[in-house]
Design a protein around this nucleic acid. Sequence first.
DNA 1: CGTCTATTTGAATGTACTCAAAAGCGGTGG
DNA 2: CCACCGCTTTTGAGTACATTCAAATAGACG
Lengths: 194, 194
Amino acid sequence: MNTSLILENISKHITLTEKETERFLSILEYRKLKKKHAFLQKHELVKQIAFVVKGCLRSYATDGKGYEHILQFAPEDYWITDIAGLISERPSLLTIEAVEDSEMLVFSREDQLRLFNEMPKLEHFFRIITEKSLAATHNRLIDYMSLTAQERYDGFCKRYPNLIQRLPQKQIASYIGVTPEFLSKTKSELLKKR
Amino acid sequence: MNTSLILENISKHITLTEKETERFLSILEYRKLKKKHAFLQKHELVKQIAFVVKGCLRSYATDGKGYEHILQFAPEDYWITDIAGLISERPSLLTIEAVEDSEMLVFSREDQLRLFNEMPKLEHFFRIITEKSLAATHNRLIDYMSLTAQERYDGFCKRYPNLIQRLPQKQIASYIGVTPEFLSKTKSELLKKR
DNA sequence: CGTCTATTTGAATGTACTCAAAAGCGGTGG
DNA sequence: CCACCGCTTTTGAGTACATTCAAATAGACG
């Protein structure tokens, strides 16, 4: 189990002693997930949090017509869960699955909360992570409200230049909130302009 | 300075000793804000967090065309700030102002972080608050992606039945992400149906 | 190599926006 | 307390952005 990535990730905000590091590692479970396989199924109870070591996951909601709406992509070095399901302790509205063959380090909410009590530092870390995530989601909501599809696509390309090549266009369309057909047309418009 | 509301709010998640309560209250500043006056101006550095005791605030982004996009309403018993500006320490993209004559308890980020060190419990509290806020914003984003304007309006009415009467329709339109004209038409459609 | 899914393209449609003008409402000052 | 002014809400006509449905093409994977 290669834990250097997750330890580096954490060390950006807090410093753990050797003992604390050991304790933290003790709650981690290593998991592989093949492309298109689910880490979390819709309607399941959400109990875990994942840190992606390799590959990429996505979380999405499915609406009444069966359309998928992607909330988050989580490539290496990202955290992912269904926070709404996790804190409400109600069945998940989201599905989380692998976009590519992936590897994760996973732990339960239960263990997380237990560690928060033992090590306030760790709660400090996740408070910061959650704040960042909230800020990012705020910005995304504002983009949604104020930009056209073309501008949102531009923004996505600039913010995640490395992800674009790894994702099917259909999923990028779903993330920025348009149909795959429309994104295709939008892209060819952009090419004509240049 | 009436602090019972904020203390009750906090006590839903943590229990403070008398000393801790005193320490917490020591960082609070009481502030009144008249309708339409700003708690935070766009382009200012964000330094404070507010708890609304009376009245109602709103936070919004202004786009290139001068349109406002409301991110949050904060009536009594709600917390509000510009989290993105606060953590990035860059000028705010949001404006926060009073919808009605309001009263708040305000403290600085600096004091907040200082107290987090002194009292891990308080960081615990804000970790929870931030998680809830993130979950709510996720749900809102999904609504945005998957529902029509009419459905979003319905949802708003159901979720905030008491707020509707206090807010100008223009601001509800801005919150659900449509023009005031369109919301007006949407409402009369709804009436015809029933 | 064949099958299945993703992407592109086109035509018709729909949802929401823009602009304009009238009606309603609230607050302010005389 | 009323009259006026400014802002909000309503209504309508024309428009734009994005969707739906369909079909053809391209790509990925076993």
